[in-house]
Design a binder for these strands. Structure first.
Lengths: 137, 137
DNA sequence: CTTGACTCTATAGTGGGCTATAGGGTTTAG
DNA sequence: CTAAACCCTATAGCCCACTATAGAGTCAAG
């Protein structure tokens, strides 16, 4: 089942431990037997991730579903929230890019400017002090 | 020193362990004694982070400096590379935002469309399968 | 019967930059 | 002399979604 969904065997077992996949029945020797439903659920998890959901969010969606309620309304809300956060992140990134460009601009004229010999790196030290950036995983 | 630089004491000690700050002299009872140079170096680390450098990169810059070479050329190169990566990330984010918008658009008309009752969440399952998104730290 | 490709469990590690906790010692003001 | 406010070390935990490793069992083909 792992292979048909394009994930590793460990990942499937990780999802099971994390409560995202139900515990499947076993053969007498302890091998897991996966139903087509389980495979569908695994595909669903992957699709939800592709849409940008964390496993925690997927858990919540599945919890709603298996409590008999349609998760769609909740999902729509989550997506809207996600859109807002993405737009905010884009703005942050845009500002960061502009700062980077300014810094590079200054770096290009730096050799012509006077700077103290005790400095570690004038390119960096010439900056106005701002908040640190996370920038990535 | 931690306070004047706006970081926690543990962070300073973490930097020392990580080789970013030199091991300072101690009082007889073992307390660290920080020179103004150490404080300057700590400020430098924070500035470099604000410009987007990882501690690993800061380590590299300091290594160059304390081998007697000017790190500026290397820093310029790193910044240019960083700019490229940021622009790539912006593009990724832009595409992701567009997908999110499309998904939300589909979600709004979903109640009017027919979909199988066995689905977990049609909003998600209607997606064309794409690569997963990291989206953040 | 052996070999190779699988399966199982349990546990630990990854990255990055810290933060928290436990258990102790030191310094300074009142 | 005591209490508060520091300092010290060492170790573990956080976040997330996996990935890796060790050690053991199972299954099918030749």
């Amino acid at each position: 089942m792992a292979r048909t969904a394009g994930v590793s065997v460990q990942t499937v077992r990780y999802y099971e431990r994390a409560g995202l996949l139900p515990r499947p029945p076993r053969t007498p020797s302890g091998y897991r037997i996966y139903s087509p439903e389980a495979a569908a659920r695994l595909r669903f998890i992957k699709q939800a991730q592709a849409v940008g959901f964390s496993l925690e969010e997927v858990r919540e969606i599945l919890r709603l579903k298996y409590n008999g309620r349609s998760p769609c309304e909740c999902v729509r809300g989550m997506l809207e929230e996600k859109l807002v956060r993405v737009e905010r992140e884009m703005e942050t990134l845009r500002r960061f890019r502009n700062e980077l460009r300014q810094t590079l601009g200054r770096a290009r004229k730096l050799p012509h400017l006077p700077h103290s010999a005790s400095a570690i790196c004038p390119i960096i030290e010439i900056q106005s002090t701002k908040k640190p950036r996370g920038e990535k995983r």
